[in-house]
Nucleic acid binder design. Sequence first.
RNA 1: GCCCGGGUGGCGGAAUGGCAGACGCUCAGGACUUAAAAUCCUGUGACCUGUAAAGGUCGUGCGGGUUCGAGUCCCGCCCCGGGCACCA
Length: 946
Amino acid sequence: MVGRRRGPTNPRTVFMADYQPENIERKWQEFWRHERLFAAAVDPTRPKFYCLDMFPYPSGEGLHVGHPEGYTATDILSRYKRARGFNVLHPMGWDAFGLPAEQYAIKTNTHPRIVTQQNVERFRRQLQALGFSYDWDRQINTTDPAYYRWTQWIFLKLYHAWFDESAQKARPIGELIADFAAGRRLVPGGQRWADLAPAEQRRVLANFRLAYEQEAPVNWCPVLGTVLANEEVIDGKSEVGGFPVERRRMRQWMLRITAYAERLLNDLDALQWPESLKMMQRNWIGRSEGAQVDFQLAGGGKITVFTTRPDTLFGATYMVLAPEHPLVDLARADHVVPSAWPAATRPEWKADSPAPGPRHAVAAYQRQVAARTERQRQEDTGKTGVFTGAYAVNPVNHEAIPIFVSDYVLMGYGTGAIMAVPAHDGRDFQFARRFKLPIRRVVSASSTNPQAGELPWEADGFSVASPGIEGLATAVAKSRICAWLEQHGHGGRRINYKIHDWLFSRQRYWGEPFPLVHLEDATTVALVEEQLPLELPPLEDFKPTGAMTPPLDRAATWRNVAVRLEGDPANPQARVVPPGTPGAVPARREANTMPQWAGSCWYYLRFLDPHNDRAFCDPKTERYWMTHPDGVDLYIGGVEHAVLHLLYARFWHKVLFDWGLVSSAEPFHKLVNQGLILGEDDRKMSKSRGNVVNPDAVIAQYGADSLRLFEMFMGPLEQVKPWSTKGVEGVHRFLQRLWRNLAADDPKARVVWLNHGTWFTNRGRLDVGPARAAEAAAAALRRPLHRTIRKVTQDIEKLSFNTAISAMMEFNNLLTKSDWIPSDMARTLLRLLEPFAPHIAEELYQKLSAVPGERAASGPGPAGPPASLTRMPWPDYDEALCVDEVLEIPVQINGKLSGRVKVAAEAPPEQVLQAALADAQVQARLANRPLRKHVYIPGRMLNLVV
RNA sequence: GCCCGGGUGGCGGAAUGGCAGACGCUCAGGACUUAAAAUCCUGUGACCUGUAAAGGUCGUGCGGGUUCGAGUCCCGCCCCGGGCACCA
């Protein structure tokens, strides 16, 4: 307890109510909400400002001090922009579907719906205790059927779209059907569209949709009982909980984010995002230019590889397939592994133990690799592998080269197969040495010496020993080879991306159901839009099954439905009808649910028009809030969403953009990452370390204003910084001092105002002496006040809140020392403080205005209760009043500080020079040395060069 | 290994190429008090000279450079944080 209780002997207690945040904060929070002061509405007469927080996941832990950091920053901006006449949209909601809440539900054996309700309620209470100026009427919850109805609706937009490569945009699936029907586009497989049965047509279309089902190796997490997206797996462990993840083949729903790779990459450039974050997205997308090359197999078929160095094709001396590559899957008929070792097989190619044949050796190697975790594979970069017994033909020189299996080639990148050029790739070089494979130089570092550069030479150079591209620089050689490959049908130029399609289904209960049904012919059909939302059935046993089947599998009555197909048989929509309805066919609902990220992919759009039940958002409303600049004006949140939410949301936004449903190509124009707040011990806050700071406790002891202020005062917003209880006390003291200075109901208050030429305090008019002192105080404070307004204004615009606060502290320190405090200046300071510490600012402002006679002095305001400070305009400053009348100019001699001279602010340079030369101290240091030149920076400093 | 950030007092941090260390914390001294707390005032980068007043030297990770002048710009290193990483 700091300064809250005064001893009974302190006489001031009798007269003056101390600053006690608990007495005022709740009151103003309720007032602001009751008066709906922060409600936003479309208003074309005012410029808009959309100020958004990453809405929280209401975990069971409650709020931690990291949450209010970003939220306070956006709140300051919101309150400030309102004062500057902007129409501010500042909403808050709940991202409440997903694994953590469900895990917590399982742990506590409570239904996720209940857990979520409790968590939301707790979070809302905690956030409201901080006095944020959210428009609470727009509160949304991703688990609300009225919300996820539109999540499902947008999913259908993905489902009903295909990506037109040539137009580089998504188009309605109906246009693809039209293209197929009219023969403008060839049907894969070569048949005529009209010759295909509807079910076959549906299967063809399924391969084009942005949402599609695919059997593929996926990240299966046995502990969580679900598959995870690549973005949710970090170092072979689940992002949620850190549980081991294994590769399994499963049939899963995917979203075709790879189609948007190029646009997701290019559109980053124009965004005002932290460079590091853009870099993370670029890395994740992982674009690389190169070529695709087909190597014919001796026994028919081919191996396709991706290479960034097609110019080294003549140096390929062997090939490598990933252990998971289909061509070495012995269960498949088309695998390449012969039953016996070829004659030329070197003993070391057969792996460590002499295996009876290549099939045994390959299988053994595959087992060995499968036994190692992803982690072990990445850490151990020693090269292992085994010869498959098969050979492929290099298209450029018709050489037969051996094919190996090795885990240094990853199935997940490129084609899962490489051509190995040991002379020009470090990894191939290592492998070739170990397996005694030829190393053939085809690039030289020099155009004159064909042997220049130590092997492996990975940098660019000049081609050697490569007929057709001999002597060419690498860049030229690459394009020559690509052209040749294209010409001869062996491949060609190709851009490869690291990013994979987004694995979008989860074997969990607590997520959005897919609005899809499966028919008996094994095709999938979307529900009609009118039947959305497809609500999650109230399943009692919501726990993961442990097997790979989702919990919704158990909701038999929910799953098994009768549907009537409507529309084009190639792309019908299913309407669920009562069983027995004529024309109805049996169907099973999709039992997987959507991942946690689905709801957050578009929530910023729902905030624009949260109660609309005819559209996810009204188009006019969308245009008003999302243009000029394109997207959200300011978005603040943690960097942990760099390649999750921020990438997924951009993807969905672009799909909506292609459908013409949103007006901007990007959702978030400007983005700032707040820095992590560490514990007082400089380490990351965690329960196990016992260094977690609970915002509720801080508010109870110091008040919300102190918490807000301290979080902003700690240091730059983006920076990682440690918590400090002493620091909270520091800003709390500042507020106490401010209270003592400005609480005008104190009989000892020094607040004064001028009314018709007479100075008053709350005890009446001042005598001549004090009046003169008040006059002097006002004059002395005028310039510092204008400087403070300027500093705070500029710093808020820069999001430099720590320095803005220090400027207000400085001004308050002046007030503390001043005999008298003019009330209009107090008012201005409170206006500046309001975005940061709104409760105390509003309270003091109202107190000031409640003193009889005072308000008359502050202008011709209407009678009656004073308006909320939050409605007062932002003060202007006078640039001329930001500089002192008399300046003290530092004088340097040869760049070294040697004295100071006082000159008038407007003094011409010569006068400053003369004043400096006349200064005794300067003269002494000059010691009669002749002045060679001088540099004068007006108002800043004078440098004398001798 | 590659790509981003960043190294400033005892601590968090501040400084359009122009007085380094604003503001806050800490600590010390003083006022008030019977006393303590709170509050208010003063001081608080290091070192040196001086009883003192005052003065001097050094100082923004290290080494160089540009400039009248560098925490700030350029070159080369060291260290810390973050991201990527057998990506063909």
